[in-house]
Structures are given as structure tokens and as C-alpha cells.
């Protein structure tokens, strides 16, 4: 696999949220406003980057049998760093994310990439994978948050979009709205992939036919 492929896989083909269906807890819970979602996205991406880096560096040092507890220790260390740094330098974001930062420890995306990729690949590839997956996660959570914030609050990045007569669709900002919006996002993603596939198929068929006609 080339570097570019690894990178792009995380963003679209193997998007952690929309294709691997991992890490739903923070995605559903912290997507009520775009700013919070970006805070959560970047925090998770940073933890993912750090843990992938350290785990691929130490992959020959760590015995196979005890890799999971070591992964957890490494991930928890990075999460605590994020928690402290956010609290010290971005107090407002920490205020609204609060509870969800410690929960990154159990985010399956981070542990999943550590187990499936970083523990088997070299440092450079692991970093690229973490970047791709991290950006894929940020895009997914920010897009969901944008849908929910626009529909449910009539604003984006806290900027009001509509006049006073706009009545927000309150359900979009409530927990059920997260599931509904995410469902539509998954459906949209599948539809796009389906169209892509069909186009490729049609292309192949066309090429086949052309070849046949040339032969004929």
C-alpha cells in the first residue's frame, strides 16, 4: 500500500466513523455544536497520532501477550496530557467537552488503530495512518455537528444563519437527532459509494465491449 493510499483510506474508504462504525459515543454526544465537535475531533486525532507513534516505536519491545494493557497505558497517558493542556490553555473548550475527554481512552478508534495498524507497521506508515484516520474522524464529527447545529439551533460556529422567524427543529439537537442525522449520513455515504461502483462497473463493461467489438 502506498502512503497516499493509507492516508486516503482513513478519510473515505475506511472512515472510522462512517465505514468502520467505531467511536460512536463521542460522535453522538459531542456533535451538538461545530466548535465542540472540532475540539473533540482534534483531541482524538492528537491522541491517535501520539499513541500510533509510540506504539509503532515500541512494537518490537512489547511482548505480544501483554500488548493490550500497554496500549491502554500509552493511550491513557496521551489523553491525560490532552486533558491537562486543554484545561490550562483552552479553558472554555475544556468546560464544554469536560466529561468526554477522559472517555477518549475507551474510544475504539484509538485502540483499534493501535491493534490493527500501529503494532504491525513502521513509524512513518503509522503516522500517516493516524493522520488519515484522525482527519476522517474530524470531518465526520464536524459534518454531523454542522447538520445538527444548523437544523436544531439555526446557527453554525455560533453565528446565527436565519432571522428571528426561524423555528429550529429541536429534535436535531436532542440525542435522537444525533442518531437520525448519523443514519442519513451513513445512507448518503453508501449511496455515493454505490454510484461510484456502478460507474466503475459500467466503465469496465464498456471497455470489455469495445475490446470485443475490436476483436470481432
Amino acid at each position: 500500500m502506498s502512503t497516499k493510499q493509507i492516508f486516503l483510506k482513513g478519510i473515505w474508504e475506511n472512515n472510522p466513523v462512517l465505514v468502520l462504525l467505531l467511536g460512536f459515543c463521542p460522535v453522538l454526544a459531542v456533535s451538538t455544536s461545530v466548535i465542540d465537535a472540532l475540539g473533540m475531533g482534534f483531541s482524538t486525532a492528537f491522541v491517535l497520532l501520539g499513541s500510533n507513534l509510540v506504539i509503532s516505536l515500541t512494537r518490537n519491545f512489547i511482548p505480544k501477550k501483554m500488548r493490550i494493557p500497554v496500549f491502554i497505558i500509552i493511550i491513557a497517558t496521551f489523553v491525560t496530557i490532552v486533558d491537562l493542556v486543554l484545561k490550562g490553555f483552552f479553558f472554555d473548550i475544556h468546560k464544554s467537552l469536560g466529561l468526554f475527554i477522559p472517555l477518549i481512552v475507551v474510544n475504539c478508534i484509538v485502540l483499534g488503530r493501535a491493534e490493527a495498524f500501529a503494532s504491525k507497521n513502521n513509524v512513518f506508515k503509522s503516522i500517516v495512518d493516524a493522520l488519515g484516520m484522525g482527519i476522517g474522524f474530524i470531518l465526520a464529527i464536524a459534518f454531523l455537528a454542522a447538520i445538527r447545529e444548523i437544523l436544531g439551533n439555526g446557527s453554525i460556529l455560533n453565528i446565527k444563519l436565519f432571522g428571528d422567524s426561524f423555528k429550529p427543529v429541536i429534535v436535531a439537537i436532542l440525542p435522537p437527532g444525533a442518531f437520525i442525522s448519523l443514519g442519513f449520513m451513513l445512507a448518503g455515504m453508501n449511496k455515493i459509494n454505490l454510484i461510484k461502483k456502478e460507474k466503475e462497473k459500467a466503465k469496465k463493461n464498456l471497455e470489455k465491449k469495445q475490446k470485443q467489438s475490436q476483436v470481432g
Binding site: F61, P69, V70, I81, L84, G88
Partner: peptide
């Protein structure tokens, strides 16, 4: 021994970060 090493390193890193961020927090 390896697990202890990992834990000690993690604790040391955290202690450092804690020290740096204590004042800003």
C-alpha cells in the same frame, strides 16, 4: 519488568506535563 518500565515512563511523562500545566490551570 517491561510493564513496569512502560508504567514508569508514562508516570514520568505525566508528572512533567502536570508540572508544566499546573500554573496555567
Amino acid at each position: 519488568i517491561k510493564l513496569v518500565v512502560v508504567c514508569v515512563v508514562a508516570a514520568a511523562v505525566l508528572a512533567m506535563v502536570y508540572d508544566i500545566t499546573k500554573e496555567p490551570i
